[in-house]
Design a protein around this nucleic acid. Structure first.
Length: 245
DNA sequence: TGCCATGTTAAACT
DNA sequence: GAGTTTAACATGGC
């Protein structure tokens, strides 16, 4: 569940608790949640894969890492993997196996909001500047760099590279300017496709490269390789996806 | 059943 | 110090 678009779905689902007071808290996280009770939810925000519940005195930051999950207004009693449960007059919100942190500082100063590919204020030109400053980085690593493309995960990486027919091991500095434009544009576009498919519970159905065995375009076998410094699996077609040198 | 994964951080190395 | 490699975390699907 943890790529950026999934966090947007969560954010929408949690709007019902905006302005509501936390009446009780339960936890299994190593954070001091004592201050939460009695506070009202001022805002619900997200930055890439991070989710924030802004209270009056502080902010709860949730990161789901690889296995995190959540549930809303769950009937059955949550099990041991519960990290944080927030109770409101109109329902309850549970987070499982995730990282929970308290932030005191001003969120606006803490994150580069224009780097969030899902954001209304996403700035493509800033992304281009950042890419220009990292010519030796492989594009597979650049896509996963949260400072450049906040919210992009391994699925989006593989699908975007396939969509624009670009080899994951291409160095950013070798990619023609037009292809860079395409990379930036389709990263955002695919993220919204991801969001819509995920909402319709049909995300996997639309995967063209991720976890796939053969290239739907030329029918040759996909290469599965742990590429770049991030060593995340890449699925790509050596025949179709161009490696600029 | 064991392996592996939509992720990140920090310690341990060179 | 910088850059890199490794370990750690922990759940569920195949």
């Amino acid at each position: 569940m943890p790529e950026g678009p999934s966090i947007i779905i969560l954010k929408e689902a949690v709007q019902q608790f905006k302005g509501k007071k936390i009446t009780d808290v339960s936890e299994n996280a190593s954070v001091d949640i004592g201050s939460f009770k009695g506070q009202k939810v001022r805002d619900i925000r997200s930055w890439g894969k991070q989710f924030f519940i802004c209270l009056e005195k502080n902010t709860i930051r949730i990161h789901f890492l690889l296995f995190g999950s959540y549930s809303i207004n769950e009937q059955t009693k949550p099990d041991k993997s519960l990290r944080l449960g927030l109770f409101f007059p109109n329902g309850a919100l549970y987070f499982y196996t995730c990282s929970v942190k308290i932030i005191q500082a001003d969120l606006d100063a803490l994150y580069d909001w224009e780097a969030d590919v899902m954001s209304d204020i996403w700035d493509a030109s800033r992304a281009r500047e950042k890419l220009k400053a990292m010519p030796g980085t492989m594009v597979c690593d650049a896509l996963l760099d949260q400072k450049v493309f906040s919210g992009v995960g391994n699925i989006i990486k593989n699908e975007v590279l396939y969509r624009i027919m670009l080899h994951p091991e291409t160095r950013v500095g070798k990619i023609p300017p037009k292809k860079i434009s395409e990379l930036i544009r389709e990263t955002r576009n695919y993220s919204f496709d991801f969001l819509n498919w995920k909402k319709a519970y049909e995300l996997k159905k639309h995967w063209l490269a991720h976890t796939k065995k053969t290239c739907p375009r030329c029918n040759l076998p996909f290469i599965k390789k742990y590429c770049g410094k991030t060593h995340r699996r890449s699925f790509f077609c050596e025949n179709c996806q161009v490696k600029y040198d």
